[in-house]
Every structure is written in structure tokens, then in C-alpha cells.
């Protein structure tokens, strides 16, 4: 039951880590790398505060992923989504729309929304609901969260149009 050496890329930085088999990706991000933006909540897959993005940009529950299974893979956390020193459009929109109450769920909700908007910047209402259903705001601020996600989508659409034009 010794430790195993893994190589993990987090937000573009490569780490070589000795991890215990029973430690999750969440444990390693927070306790070994020191990136505490990703939160520990229910630890059972019901709340989504531990959400990070995997290689394909998909929303991953880091509390239900064994760190040893991430050897040679890469992950993006809330600390790694700024673009050129500026907040990511989702982060900016959460600020502008006050989509934060206590803030505990925010990293997980932002990473869940980013996973959706990286696939489509014109999400339907159903798609937004589906993407956020696994990320619970304990203060029940989902209306502002959804407004912020729609606003972020609009900004990202504009950015795409500008880049294309």
C-alpha cells in the first residue's frame, strides 16, 4: 500500500508526485499541490463543489477520481482559467451578476459552466440546467448563476465572432 509516483499536469504545470492509492484527485490538488480553490464538499458526488475540468474540458468530480488514475493526464482547476491575466468570461459574469452568495460552491459551478460553454457558446436552457444540475448552490442562488452563465455565453460568442472576423 505504498505510494506511487505519478506525473500530473495542473493548469499547464507538470508535477511529479508520490501519491497514496487511496487519495483522490481532490486530496492531491488541495493537500499536496496547495491549490485550495477546488473545494471539498459532500465527497460523494452529490454537490459538485470539487468540479475540475479534464483533458477534454469535461466536468470531473475530483472527489470521486483516484489520483493514481490521473498519471500522465492533465487537469484544469479554478486557478487556471484566467486568460492573459484577465478573469475568464464566466468568472467576470459571476462578479457582474452577483452570482455568488457565500462563495463555497462558486469554483465548482464556474468549472461546470465552463465545461458547457467550451462545447457550445449558444446553450439552450435545458443544456444549462443539465450542466449545472450536479453543482449545488447551498444558498439557493441558482437564478443569478444562470443569468451569469447566459451573459458569459454572450461574451464568449462575441469573442468568437471577433476572432473569426
Amino acid at each position: 500500500m505504498g505510494k506511487q509516483l505519478i506525473t500530473l499536469t495542473v493548469n499547464g504545470d507538470e508535477y511529479e508526485l508520490a501519491v497514496a492509492s487511496h487519495h483522490t484527485l481532490l486530496d492531491v490538488l488541495r493537500n499536496q499541490i496547495g491549490l485550495t480553490g477546488t473545494k471539498r464538499g459532500c465527497t460523494a458526488g452529490s454537490c459538485g463543489v470539487c468540479t475540475v475540468n479534464g483533458e477534454r474540458g469535461e466536468a470531473i468530480l475530483s472527489c470521486l477520481s483516484l489520483a493514481v488514475e490521473w498519471d500522465g493526464r492533465s487537469v484544469t482547476t479554478i486557478e487556471g482559467i484566467r486568460q492573459g491575466g484577465e478573469l475568464h468570461p464566466v468568472q467576470q459574469a459571476f462578479l457582474e451578476y452577483g452570482a455568488v452568495q457565500c462563495g463555497f460552491c462558486t469554483p465548482g459551478v464556474v468549472m461546470s459552466a465552463k465545461a458547457l460553454l467550451d462545447v457550445t457558446t449558444s446553450p439552450s436552457e435545458d443544456q444549462i440546467n443539465e450542466a449545472l444540475a450536479g453543482a449545488i448552490c447551498r444558498c439557493t442562488g441558482h437564478i443569478k448563476i444562470k443569468k451569469a452563465v447566459r451573459a458569459a455565453a454572450a461574451v464568449m460568442r462575441d469573442n468568437e465572432a471577433r476572432d473569426d472576423g
Binding site: 458526488g45 468540479t51 466536468a59 470531473i60 468530480l61 477520481s65 461546470s112 465545461a115 450536479g134 453543482a135
Partner: peptide
């Protein structure tokens, strides 16, 4: 099944 997060795992 579950949420999108769970289905990704």
C-alpha cells in the same frame, strides 16, 4: 443516471 458530472465518470 446521476448528473452530467457523474456521467462523465
Amino acid at each position: 443516471v446521476g448528473s452530467r458530472h457523474v456521467r462523465n465518470i
